[in-house]
Amino acid sequence: MTANSKLIGLVPILGLVLLWGWLAASGMAPRALLPSPVDVVQRLFELLADPDFLAQIGTTLFRLVSGFLIALVLGTVLAVLSASSEVTQTAVNAFVRILAPLPKIALYPAMILILGFGHSSKIALVVIEAAFPIYLATYQGMRNVDKKLVWAARSAGASRLHCLLFVMLPAAAPSILTGARVALVISCIVVFLSEMMSSTEGLGYVLIDAARNFRTIDMFVPIILISALGLGLGAGLSALRRKLLVGYPQD
């Protein structure tokens, strides 16, 4: 894509921001309902200088990252287990088929009651939401590995376990990282929603707290921040992906 064709994509984004600014300035929408974009950005920087607010971001990030990493390990381990034999494949996939269509968010109250209102119930929700896309991507990726790659390794003297971990898993890496990207965005969204539904800290709580006190401007800030967090982490993962997959054919 040329620079020019990229610039054209900024038009609708700028247009929306301008429309928002105009709506707020024209007085059609009362300030209490719709703060101007300038005010929101100002408030954003104000809050970013506030250590209490930074602590809220830290809490959300901690829950997000730990949930995502646990899901990454869990999803990958289950996929390797599933790829290792027919029996494990049938067993793991039976559970996946039962649990996948279930709206996991419905289990959140149960997690609160079992794990408490603190970090662990939020992390648990992130884990079960994010583990599925990672498992499915890894499983598909490992299934689609060219059999001859494994044969070549086995002939060279590799054991079955070695093939599973050092041939099939790396061969599936592009697919795993694609799944991880999807899961990362899901983790961002889920951690925020879990904090909105029940929490006393974190960005989601900041939003709900502002809503209770009708501070509209403070409702915009956490939403913008969590979206930026999602974009930033996603871009980071893409960069990491390019670095890790240096030898792989482009897809």
């Binding site: 894509m1 929603l193 969590i226 979206s227």
Partner: peptide, 26 residues
Amino acid sequence: ERLLNPLIMMIYPIPKAALMPILMIW
């Protein structure tokens, strides 16, 4: 496609259900 792709990519990570409190006010 060129016009809307960046917008879609930007909106994608917004937790839509989180807009609920604002929409409630409106």
